[in-house]
Write a protein that binds this DNA or RNA. Sequence first.
DNA 1: TTCTTGTCACCTAGGTGTTAATAT
DNA 2: ATATTAACACCTAGGTGACAAGAA
Lengths: 229, 229
Amino acid sequence: SVQLEMKALWDEFNQLGTEMIVTKAGRRMFPTFQVKIFGMDPMADYMLLMDFVPVDDKRYRQDAFPSRRYAFHSSSWLVAGKADPATPGRVHYHPDSPAKGAQWMKQIVSFDKLKLTNNLLDDNGHIILNSMHRYQPRFHVVYVDPRKDSEKYAEENFKTFVFEETRFTAVTAYQNHRITQLKIASNPFAKGFRDCDPEDWPRNHRPGALPLMSAFARSRNPVSSPAHQ
Amino acid sequence: SVQLEMKALWDEFNQLGTEMIVTKAGRRMFPTFQVKIFGMDPMADYMLLMDFVPVDDKRYRQDAFPSRRYAFHSSSWLVAGKADPATPGRVHYHPDSPAKGAQWMKQIVSFDKLKLTNNLLDDNGHIILNSMHRYQPRFHVVYVDPRKDSEKYAEENFKTFVFEETRFTAVTAYQNHRITQLKIASNPFAKGFRDCDPEDWPRNHRPGALPLMSAFARSRNPVSSPAHQ
DNA sequence: TTCTTGTCACCTAGGTGTTAATAT
DNA sequence: ATATTAACACCTAGGTGACAAGAA
């Protein structure tokens, strides 16, 4: 069995409609897909991998106010038509694959090397997705069958796990400001954009109390100012 | 068979008498021990590891001029007595172990996670060495024997490789200024201490032409000055 | 006197959202 | 009008030798 790590954070994002940035060079996911695994044969070899399947065959667009240049968007998405042609259905093998069950189970398995791109010609092995489309991450565990005719047992030698709370829309720029603010509040690498006190988020974060978004009305950083030292 | 990477650089250090810093928290080696491997069974599993054996049973001390407070040392070492009691003979498994021969052979194997410490009570799994003693790094390849009574074949299932040019003296502070300058000239992380032009060292480095040490007479950085921006 | 320790400025390496400019 | 791109300031994370102070 498999347990999703940081489920509370995933839930929080999912409630707002998770968005993941895709870039030409490849962008990591945040939250990172991480799991705890139970019940493997400690001595057997396993491959761990992820792929991403379209949630539907639709293309989306943002329901925007015609105020300032997309300074504000509604948080709702409109269907903009049929999906673009499917992208190459790549998979991402966890770089530690293959490894023994004992190895996988003794610590959290983190897919932090996985990157998303919108470059159909990508040759870095990144996951290729269509922007403005919705995807469901999937996690697969493949038992490395030592038998010579292992291909015959392929069907029974893998198991797939799907966590619906990890669904997201691929975007090239954030559409929903609340998503942006939640990313800033919870991703350590975005600390430079926080307004709030140097409070000990995310260490003390408990789900249920959501005092997260205090950076809403933050002032812009002038391009070449000394900045708040 | 195994080929040492950056052999020219190792030779250059070895000619001066390589020194490696040891600290309580653990310090990486520079140069990093890296090898190319040939002739493995691509489908078989191997463990790769390193250990460090004393070159002799001597303790060393530096032959210093009594001028300024060790502003200048001779480049020669004096024997200062018998070796201290041996340290726990730890080994460092390459973190990718175990892996298939194909995996090990398809790229340079780098031991850049290996750290040296002088803390006899270290519990971070670092290699424990005595300062002011000389050591010979050794590289071991262990074939993971699938047979049930594999212990019986332990003797024939591993092979050891020794590169004498990787010998070094463990120190808590550099004793030979030429070693310091060569480290500064060749280690990217020490770029802040370079005086010379932003020349494209080490990319263009060819052994034989040694225009390395141009940082000899560099000025000290005052502790709280704006420093050369 | 010699060696060790801890702190520091200065780097490498790379992950963030922002922004202005460019595509579509 | 909307979506994408590339450069950028600002972070995280951690590897350097210098230096002053301490230990033996």
